[in-house]
């Protein structure tokens, strides 16, 4: 397996708050990598640094060997590196199908293709993916009227519609009904195995992440605390302490 994302010694602070200090992380192509850590440990900040939401103070970030730490958000997204938001972001005034169709991978389109109408196949694919995440019944509802959990699922489906190479998911199971979580784990795994999308997932639910990831990184107070396979992480006393003594 090759490294698709390499984060090297990245630091980022907001004013006085050191949100990330000297973080180094690798995401393997084709795998599922987990990122855990107590609240405020800097996970979302790291995601934002990777996808270009803010400048980093120091360090380097590479995607498929290419330095991306100075690039703009849309240029990075166009490389096929996509993220979902912790506070979901969808086009609230449009219905689910429209949301899906807008998420077509424009980076793979020529201008000529952009100036065509969506085909039957595009609609089918949109509905298929909505079905995949369990929103088929709601497909013509205004997406802003969906519940938070449903919006999360829609955002996930939109990301899949975009055919990314790597997908960064910020707490995909937050707000999802516990009885649906097993189904979601299954879908995430299928997105990884069937669609071949590399996943990098922030997750608070230990059961979920231990179940899915091949390797896990743990942050605490903005620093990298531990990394390894799920079983290694589970047995790591520092991780247990960080979670129990997180105050």
């Amino acid at each position: 397996m090759t490294k698709i994302i390499e984060v090297n010694n990245v630091s980022k602070s907001y004013g006085g708050v050191k949100a990330n200090t000297d973080i180094s992380i690798e995401v393997q192509q084709g795998g599922i990598t987990g990122l855990i850590g107590p609240n405020g440990s800097g996970k979302t900040t790291l995601f934002n640094s990777i996808v270009g939401y803010h400048p980093i103070d120091s360090g380097s970030i590479r995607f498929e060997g290419k330095e991306i730490s100075k690039m703009q958000v849309q240029d990075i997204a166009r490389l096929g590196l996509l993220r979902t938001f912790q506070q979901t972001r969808i086009y609230g005034d449009m219905n689910c199908v429209e949301n899906m169709l807008i998420s077509m991978p424009h980076r793979k389109m020529t201008i000529r293709e952009a100036f065509t109408t969506n085909t039957r196949a595009d609609h089918d694919r949109a509905e298929h993916l909505l079905d995949f995440v369990g929103l088929y019944e709601k497909r013509f509802l205004r997406s802003g009227s969906l519940s938070f959990g449903q919006q999360k699922l829609l955002e996930f489906a939109m990301a899949l519609m975009n055919e990314p190479t790597v997908l960064l998911l910020d707490e995909p199971t937050a707000g999802i009904n516990p009885t649906l979580i097993n189904g979601l784990i299954d879908r995430l795994k299928r997105a990884n195995s069937e669609f071949g999308i590399t996943l990098f997932i922030i997750e608070h639910n230990m059961r979920v992440i231990m179940n899915m990831a091949d390797s896990i990184y743990c942050l605490a107070h903005g620093e990298l605390l531990a990394s390894g396979t799920p079983s290694e992480i589970q047995g790591d006393q520092r991780v247990v302490d960080a979670y129990l003594g997180a105050h």
Binding site: Q74, L82, R83, F85, R89, G92, I102, R107, M158
Partner: peptide
């Protein structure tokens, strides 16, 4: 509707 989202989805 949401330009930041559109950018994050890789629209030109």
């Amino acid at each position: 509707d949401d330009e930041e989202k559109a950018e994050a989805m890789g629209l030109h």
